[in-house]
């Protein structure tokens, strides 16, 4: 019985965070761009979230006649479903975790691989040259960076000896993994930005180059779903970074554990938004080249060095 409340509570909090990110991103971007952002609807403009959501719901639900109807409809659902499933393994506090799987990290990687489908299917179902180009590029980018993301986490698995996230958080009681695995942190974060296709890796949806890329034919709530999926992805990567490298819910006792978790997650969400405000976009082939030629050797090196040090300490 207790469990169903945890599930519903996590779901509720997550959807609110994703919606709230609409407001937060626009205000933070505006702050960094010397302008105001939405400040009229409600106190500090927070009701912009309600306004945007209502607007999207009321838009005409138009499916292009040349598009493949079922694939067109399921594509946005896939991204939201897969990201929400990934939150199943994240420990918000010692007692709040939806399902503490034995293969926690692998489950996270499996769900992010499923996220690729939404892009590929969304671009194809729109039956539009622009969307298809954007979709295929986005898919290749995501698959490549998934590899680096997974490998960068393996160092931590080696140090902890388990795939369970609660074990990983507990293993950070003395010192956070950010000090033991700094290279892995950088690579994981970069790969995470590429996975959620945010700037500077937002080539699939590059606004000034391909209009809206793979989701250019979408409008209304389906478009809203893509956006919710993107914001949930941002929250997921921030939460994973906080859990894996910064101790998750660990922190001094004057705040409850879940508060520490949220503070750390929000810090990374703000960093995501700062990246969007400040960096230009590399070209697609430059992105892939950097990934395979720089990140892959680095992550493998990190793995080897971690393994060597772990063996040396143990033996």
């Amino acid at each position: 019985m207790q469990h169903i409340w945890i599930v519903l509570g996590v779901l509720f909090v997550l959807l609110n965070i994703a919606a709230g990110l609409i407001w937060l991103e626009r205000r933070m971007l505006a702050m960094w761009q010397d302008r105001l952002g939405p400040n009229r609807a409600g106190p500090l403009g927070i009701l912009i979230v309600l306004a945007d959501t209502l607007k999207l719901f009321f838009k005409e639900d138009w499916i292009p006649p040349f598009a493949d109807k079922w694939v067109f409809i399921t594509a946005p659902a896939i991204v939201v479903a897969s990201v929400l499933m990934s939150f199943v393994i994240i420990p918000f506090s010692p007692s709040i975790i939806v399902s503490d799987l034995n293969v926690g990290i692998l489950f996270f990687l499996a769900m992010s691989s499923l996220g690729v489908y939404s892009i590929v299917l969304g671009g194809w179902a729109s039956n539009n040259k622009y969307s298809l180009l954007g979709a295929l590029r986005g898919a290749s980018q995501m698959i490549a960076y998934e590899v680096f993301m997974g490998l960068s986490l393996m160092g931590i698995v080696m140090l902890t000896g388990s795939f369970k996230l609660s074990d990983i958080v507990n293993a950070q009681k003395d010192v956070w993994f950010v000090f033991k695995q700094p290279v892995a942190l950088v690579i994981f974060f970069i790969a995470g930005v590429a996975e959620t296709h945010r700037l500077p890796f937002d080539i699939p949806e590059a606004e000034s180059e391909l209009i809206a890329g793979f989701h250019s034919e979408y409008s209304g709530m389906k478009f809203g779903m893509f956006f919710i999926g993107e914001y949930l992805g941002v929250t997921l990567i921030s939460a994973m970074t906080a859990t894996m490298f910064f101790g998750g819910w660990l922190g001094p006792a004057f705040l409850p554990p879940w508060a520490w978790f949220f503070i750390k997650t929000f810090a990374f969400i703000l960093f995501f938004i700062l990246l969007r405000a400040s960096l230009p976009r590399p070209r697609y082939d430059q992105l892939m080249e950097t990934g395979w030629k720089v990140l892959l050797p680095l992550v493998l090196l990190n793995l080897m060095v971690t393994g060597a040090i772990a063996l040396w300490i143990r033996g």
Binding site: L29, L199, A277, P280
Partner: peptide, 15 residues
């Protein structure tokens, strides 16, 4: 700068 993806400088320059 905006075409290349950097969204912020254009605001400063227009000011």
């Amino acid at each position: 700068a905006q075409d290349v993806g950097q969204l912020s400088p254009v605001f400063y320059m227009f000011t």
